[in-house]
Simulated assay, not measured.
Amino acid sequence: MQNWEGVSEFVAVAESGGFTAAAGRLGISTAQVSRQVSALEARLSTKLLYRTTRKVSVTEAGQIYYQHCRQVLDGLAEAERAVTDLQQVPRGRLRLTAPVTYGETTLAPLVNDFALCHPELQVEMQLTNHKLDLVAEGYDLAIRLGRLEDSSMMARRLGSRTLYVCASPQYLSSRGEPHSLSELGQHNCLPGTLDYWRFREQGRSRNIKVSGSIRCNSGRALVDAALKGIGIVQLPDYYVEEHLRAGRLVSLLEHYREEDDGIWGVYPHNRHLSPKVRMLLDYFSESLGE
């Protein structure tokens, strides 16, 4: 086994850009990672990494060695997954990532129910609004919303989400209700991350630039502002449907509503779809409605 010692640690350092990050990824100490990589370099009589006080970079020889090691490790992981498939039982670690609010409100309860049914499974769920590199960071699955941009990934549509434009009855009683897209300029529209809202007019998608007294990258904050009568918002269904049903918000401009976005399960195209990932995707699909 000596020939394998340090290989996983070196690959983790090369991909994560540092010993501390690699240690966190592997679940071992930074000192152990450093020792293993140093022993590997000594065994190869080759410097694989440049180390400075500020950063770690891969040498030319290290790049060549990394490419070969990555293929070998991928092959070993594929072999292990193939053997696990024979058992058809979700087990081992499953790492997935999802957007924060959608993950908290919708996915986490589903993941928890799934984990209850499969006690041999260890789930690690990272909720973040940043798009993580699934291959480099070792994730099995990502849940992404809206339009997909990364064609290097495999994707399965699990469900859909609807974008609503809405305001409180209080706001509408004081400012009136817009009935056309051109009237939005006369209203206090509260944008989020983007400065435009999406609509569909005469069969075509159309983006309308909006502005107002508040702009915030938090959907929950915008919902609160809308409920307090400050202005109009455009948000996905999981933020506003409860308030729409209760009459606390009113849906507007429904004739111009954009087509529903997709909810996608995304995974690397060269990664074997293990039973645990496939079964979780099936569970999501059944629960989310498609």
Rank of each mutant, 00 (worst) to 15 (best):
23 A>F: 09
26 L>E: 04
273 L>I: 14
202 Q>N: 15
36 Q>L: 15
19 F>G: 04
73 L>P: 05
215 R>I: 00
200 R>V: 12
4 W>F: 15
238 Y>M: 05
60 E>C: 05
183 E>I: 01
264 W>M: 07
39 A>D: 14
255 H>T: 15
172 L>M: 01
258 E>T: 11
248 R>F: 03
139 Y>D: 03
172 L>W: 03
149 E>R: 13
7 V>M: 11
290 E>L: 15
225 A>T: 03
161 R>Q: 13
90 P>Y: 00
71 Q>V: 14
104 E>K: 05
102 Y>T: 09
91 R>T: 11
84 T>C: 05
152 S>L: 07
210 V>E: 03
186 Q>H: 14
194 L>R: 15
111 V>M: 02
234 Q>T: 05
43 R>Y: 07
162 T>C: 11
69 C>F: 10
98 A>R: 03
108 A>C: 12
44 L>R: 14
283 Y>V: 11
148 L>F: 08
10 F>E: 06
108 A>R: 11
222 L>I: 02
12 A>Y: 05
64 I>Q: 15
51 R>P: 02
31 A>K: 13
117 C>V: 10
117 C>S: 12
290 E>K: 15
92 G>A: 00
150 D>W: 06
56 V>L: 03
129 N>L: 01
202 Q>W: 10
122 Q>Y: 08
195 D>I: 09
21 A>E: 09
167 A>V: 05
121 L>M: 02
33 V>F: 04
161 R>H: 10
75 G>F: 03
151 S>P: 08
53 T>A: 15
148 L>I: 12
121 L>K: 00
284 F>R: 06
290 E>Y: 15
214 I>M: 10
189 C>R: 00
217 N>E: 12
83 V>C: 04
160 S>Y: 10
81 R>H: 02
191 P>V: 02
48 L>I: 05
59 T>G: 09
84 T>M: 08
78 E>W: 03
236 P>I: 01
163 L>Y: 12
129 N>A: 01
87 Q>R: 13
174 S>P: 10
145 L>E: 01
11 V>S: 04
83 V>W: 04
200 R>T: 12
30 T>Y: 09
284 F>S: 07
115 A>M: 07
160 S>F: 09
234 Q>E: 07
50 Y>K: 13
5 E>Q: 15
239 Y>K: 00
2 Q>C: 13
243 H>S: 11
100 V>W: 03
166 C>G: 00
239 Y>I: 01
74 D>P: 07
76 L>V: 09
140 D>I: 00
78 E>R: 08
274 S>E: 11
152 S>G: 07
43 R>W: 07
211 S>W: 08
169 P>F: 05
157 R>Q: 12
237 D>L: 10
181 L>H: 04
60 E>N: 09
262 G>A: 13
143 I>K: 02
275 P>A: 10
8 S>M: 14
66 Y>C: 09
8 S>D: 15
218 S>W: 03
141 L>R: 05
173 S>H: 13
140 D>M: 00
59 T>W: 03
108 A>I: 13
80 E>S: 06
